[in-house]
Design a protein around this nucleic acid. Structure first.
Lengths: 235, 235
DNA sequence: CGACCAAACTGGTCGGACCGCATTGGATGG
DNA sequence: CCATCCAATGCGGTCCGACCAGTTTGGTCG
């Protein structure tokens, strides 16, 4: 079923699930490459490649001659998120935390963007903002436009580091197509916020732009939660 | 010379330097694994492992049967930063951008931390803040205390995603010991800011805490620039 | 009981081999 | 002459068996 990708990726996926599932607790040692190979019915090379993947994600730490130990999730890198959020039923709390950080980063980027952006970028931003509230825009287009807008903000911030952080965040939120959900976009409430952001761009007012984008993202908050974690339930 | 680590790591380092140095431009295809192996005098396994590392960093994209092409730096992950900033003479502009993002993230974390932190964490934060301005604190201790403080803020924010982002940022800023520089910490100007942050904790005032931490980080800005990129000069 | 050393691990590298896939360039049919 | 098709080529992905260097570990010896 889940043999969608390469052998090594499948092994990495399995180990990842086992670690995230708690089979191997933080600090615990994983079986050796050779034992994992026979246990999973794969070659040591493939197992090794999978382990290297997990090491690069920051999930495990490998010492030559020593073995591989599980690293606590909070000490890992952003890459782990991609698989924690990509699960069948992601933790709603984790999704909420993702949204908080995303809001923080993009709103901050908007501040820089208004300070350093070009007229062309402002025009493009206004075009995208207007498209968000156009009645002819489908829900899929709404999401795509939103993504394009955040990327535009990141680019206009003239900050490569910020773009990289956003890359990590958005990559983590990428859902596999088969688990995508249908959502409804809240259009009406957006109009005043969008006007506010446009005004901020005209006035080159960074603080106002930051606050406007923050409100914009917060309005879409429940939408993203539904998109990533499925409707209602707890929280 | 630079055989600090394993063979694969050395190869990855070399390729990384070549890519960052512009030998292979964005979108350009790298030589095949076999050719790189003979060219670098290493086994294909080692070359392969190095390429996998770069792929995981987001620097290159590998297609089965196709080859490996270079990904533009702005589309890569945070991991690339570690080596871009770890160079002998890092780009000062890049360091400045790192500082902007770090300030944005930690100040935002401070907001959450004041909302969600425990009394014990507040007490620890105050202890660290006071240590920053104690005359008996050495410059090395100043830096360590600052790191501990930002980590405490990240932990107290109760946001795993935010901690991961911070992990990525701090890992990128880790300098190799041999290239560390001596710096002087600006202690006197910190006192009013620190009092402000303490007051914000007592009042549970998130906005004030965010602004205070932002000022605190900004005060240390030139210090970090010197630490990472070396004092003044061009580049 | 403690220090010490050797055997048993572990990960890192090597060389060779085979597979399925993507690319490509020449032969073919229009 | 051009568009099409297909086989040869090159690519990454996997597998195998072997050896090396470092860590762990257990038992032995002082």
């Amino acid at each position: 079923m889940t043999t969608t990708a390469s052998r090594a990726e499948a092994i990495a996926e399995a180990l990842r699930a086992q670690i995230l599932g708690g089979k191997y607790g933080p600090g615990e040692k994983l079986p050796s490459e050779r034992e994992l190979a026979v246990r999973l019915g794969a070659n040591r090379s493939s197992v090794r490649e999978a382990l290297k993947k997990l090491e690069q994600l920051g999930m495990i730490a490998i010492r030559p001659g020593g073995g591989a130990r599980v690293v606590p999730m909070a000490e890992a890198g952003l890459g782990v998120l991609r698989h924690a959020l990509g699960a069948e039923a992601p933790d709603r709390e984790l999704v909420a935390q993702w949204l908080d950080v995303h809001e923080l980063v993009i709103a901050g980027a908007a501040r820089f963007a208004v300070e350093r952006g070009t007229e062309e970028e402002f025009a493009e931003a206004k075009r995208l903002l207007r498209k968000l509230v156009q009645p002819t825009t489908t829900d899929d287009e709404f999401i795509q436009t939103g993504d394009a807008l955040t990327e535009l903000i990141a680019v206009a911030s003239r900050n490569v580091v910020l773009r990289m952080v956003r890359n990590g965040l958005t990559a983590a939120a990428q859902k596999r197509p088969e688990t995508r959900r249908q959502v409804r976009a809240p259009r009406k409430e957006l109009l005043p916020i969008i006007r506010d952001i446009e005004q901020a761009m005209d006035d080159r007012d960074p603080a106002r732009a930051e606050e406007g984008v923050r409100k914009l993202l917060r309005t879409n908050r429940s939408l993203v939660i539904d998109l990533l974690a499925g409707p209602s339930g707890g929280n």
